[in-house]
Amino acid sequence: MDGRVTAVSSNGVYSFTKPNRESVTLVAGFGVEGDVHGGATVKHRFRMAKDPSQPNLRQVHLIHGELFDELRAAGFEVAAGQLGENVTTRGIDLLGLPTGARLLLGDEAVVEVTGLRNPCAQIDGFKKGLLKEVVGRGSDGRPRFRSGIMGVVVAGGVVRPGDSVRVGLPGGPHRALEVV
C-alpha cells in the first residue's frame, strides 16, 4: 500500500485551520516542529483541561485527500489544512489501518498510528453541516469517524508535498482504530 503526501500544514497558534507549508519537520517524540499540538504530553486544550500530564497520542494529524473529494461531491469545498491536519495524503486507506501501523513519509520520517481523530463541533463553525458529513453511522449504528487519523513521531525528518507514503503493518492480530 503506497501513496503520496499532497500537502503539509502547521500552525504555531491555536486555530481550527492550519496554513499549508512547503515542508514540515517531524521530530521524534514531539510531532511537527513549530506546531501548537507538538509535545510529549497532550496539547489539545480539551484534553489538557482533564489531565495535562497524559501522553500526546495526537502529535500528527493525517487526512486522506479523497475525503475532500467526497465532501466536494456533498457540496462542501474544503482544502488541505482547513480541518487542522498536518499531513494530507492520497492513495492510502488511512481509516482502514490498524493501531500501530507505521507510515514512512518521504525518506526518513516515521509516524506510528495511534487512532482516529474525533471531530468536534468546531467543524460546524467552519462550515455548517460539515460535522454530519465527517461523522457517519456504520451498519451497526455506531458512529463512524472519517476526519483522519492521529499518530506519534517515532523517527524525525522533513516531509514535503510529493513525498512517498509507505505503510508498515504491525504483527497480528491487528486492532481496529479507536478514537484517541
Rank of each mutant, 00 (worst) to 15 (best):
R45L: 13
E33T: 15
T41G: 04
Q54W: 03
F46I: 09
A49I: 08
V42M: 02
R47W: 00
K50I: 03
G29K: 05
R47D: 01
G34Y: 14
L57K: 15
R47H: 07
H61Q: 12
E66F: 08
H44L: 04
A49N: 05
G29H: 05
Q59I: 03
P52E: 01
P52W: 04
A49C: 04
R58L: 09
L67T: 15
V36W: 01
P55V: 10
R47K: 06
L67P: 08
V32T: 08
E66W: 09
L62I: 06
H61R: 10
V32W: 08
L57F: 11
F30A: 15
H44A: 11
Q54Y: 04
Q54A: 10
F46P: 01
G65L: 06
L67R: 12
D35F: 02
H64T: 05
Q59T: 10
R45S: 11
H44T: 05
H61Y: 12
D35G: 11
Q54R: 15
G29T: 04
G38Q: 04
G38N: 01
D35W: 13
M48T: 08
F46G: 01
M48S: 07
R45Q: 15
V32Y: 07
V32C: 10
Q59H: 14
D35N: 09
L67M: 14
F46S: 05
G38M: 03
I63C: 11
D51Y: 07
R58T: 08
G65I: 11
R58H: 13
H61N: 13
A49K: 15
V32K: 15
P55C: 11
P52M: 03
T41D: 06
G31W: 01
M48G: 01
F68V: 00
F68W: 03
H61W: 07
D51G: 02
G38S: 15
V32P: 08
L62S: 09
P52C: 02
M48R: 15
V36R: 15
H61C: 10
F46L: 03
Q59G: 12
E33N: 14
F68P: 02
E33D: 14
G65C: 06
S53Q: 13
F68M: 13
K43P: 00
V36H: 04
P55D: 12
Q59D: 12
F30C: 14
H37T: 08
F68D: 01
N56F: 10
L62W: 01
F30M: 15
E66G: 12
S53F: 02
T41L: 04
R47T: 04
P52V: 07
L57Q: 14
P52T: 09
K43N: 04
G34M: 14
V60C: 02
T41Y: 03
V32D: 09
H64E: 13
L57H: 13
S53H: 12
Q54S: 07
H64V: 02
A49W: 05
A40I: 03
S53W: 07
H64M: 01
R45F: 07
G39S: 03
G38R: 07
L62E: 12
V42D: 00
G34E: 13
H44W: 07
H37D: 08
